[in-house]
Write a protein that binds this DNA or RNA. Structure first.
Length: 301
DNA sequence: CCGCGGGCCTGAGAGC
DNA sequence: TGCTCTCAGGCCCGCG
């Protein structure tokens, strides 16, 4: 489910109840999520103060007083909710009028702030791991990640360079977290639409001819690359402002829905008229690398 | 190394 | 009502 805007929304919801508070008690209610929990997972969290809550790509990172970092990933269906300590934790199958099945409340942090933070994940593609902060650079889950799309170093030149020599489609390249870290299927479709670029275009065409050979440092970006970076910035910032997109699972930690799904131009809009003024095309869908791509074949070239 | 397809899980919705 | 089938916002792994 969650792409960068949803994870950032979750981070902003958790920050006020986690930062500066102590994890009085941690519960892992099953032995695994996507991966088995570490044997010392609960022990390394218990009694620790959370000194900061950050985000890298689609990961949340909670800094602990011990020098450890708690790494959290929401997978496809993970969500956090914040509730008052002892409140109505899981009385029935469905609670909080949120359609969340309590059977999938897998991890709970009881905070000294008086908040219980509950991680719910029906599909269990999410995971959590505690690692030493001084080993972050060696962490396999983080090591290959490319630049933050909203970070200073991510610009047209860098994008063009990392697409240089890529034989794959532009769509697949943008989904590759080594190229840029944090985009997923929705925001790739939306960014390509806003940039009027075809998802089928060869990724290497973002660099000029001179720069298309892989690894050429001076590969000049094309106007296409500039347009695409602008579109990525715009769509991510707008989505964060809207609290993310709620299709099925994503909720803000308060339980509120995000509402950026209403602003989708093409995602999940197969058959609708293209929203580009004067285009007159129709939004189409097809499958690329096993994922649905939504686009307007008339104005995305 | 690179790109692709399969697999991991559960649940919602469509069609019969 | 209920069954079967498809699809879903992610990512690791193994294959060619």
């Amino acid at each position: 489910m969650p792409e960068l805007p949803e994870v950032e929304t979750v981070r902003r919801g958790l920050q006020p109840v986690m930062e500066g508070a102590k994890i009085v008690k941690a519960e892992a209610r099953r032995k695994d999520l996507r991966f088995p929990f570490q044997k010392d997972f609960v022990a390394r969290l218990t009694g620790q103060t959370v000194t900061g809550l950050g985000r890298r790509a689609k990961y949340l990172l909670a800094d602990l007083g011990s020098g450890d970092v708690l790494l959290m990933h929401l997978g496809m269906s993970g969500s956090f909710r914040v509730q008052k300590a002892g409140e109505d934790e899981a009385p029935g199958r469905f609670h909080h009028a949120r359609g969340k099945d309590a059977a999938h409340d897998h991890v709970v942090f009881h905070m000294s702030s008086g908040a219980d933070i509950v991680f719910n994940d029906p599909r269990r593609f999410g995971y959590m791991k505690v690692i030493a902060r001084n080993a972050l650079d060696d962490e396999p889950l983080l090591r290959g990640l490319g630049p933050e799309p909203l970070g200073n170093e991510f610009d047209a030149a860098l994008l063009a360079r990392s697409c240089a020599g890529k034989k794959t489609s532009l769509k697949a390249a943008l989904l590759d977290q080594r190229v840029v870290a944090g985009l997923g299927n929705i925001y790739v479709c939306e960014a390509l639409f806003r940039a009027h670029l075809s998802p089928r275009r060869l990724a290497a065409t973002l660099a000029t001819k001179a720069g298309q050979r892989k690894g050429v440092a001076g590969g000049e970006p094309t106007d296409h690359a500039r347009r695409l970076v602008e579109a990525i910035h715009a769509v991510l910032n707008a989505a964060i402002k809207a609290g993310g997109s709620s299709l099925r699972d994503h909720r803000q930690t308060s339980g509120e829905l995000g509402y950026f799904q209403h602003a989708f131009k093409v995602y999940d809009r197969e058959g609708e008229p293209c929203p580009t003024p004067g285009c007159g095309g129709v939004v189409r869908r097809f499958t690329q690398n096993g994922r649905s791509t939504f686009w307007c074949p008339k104005c995305q070239k």
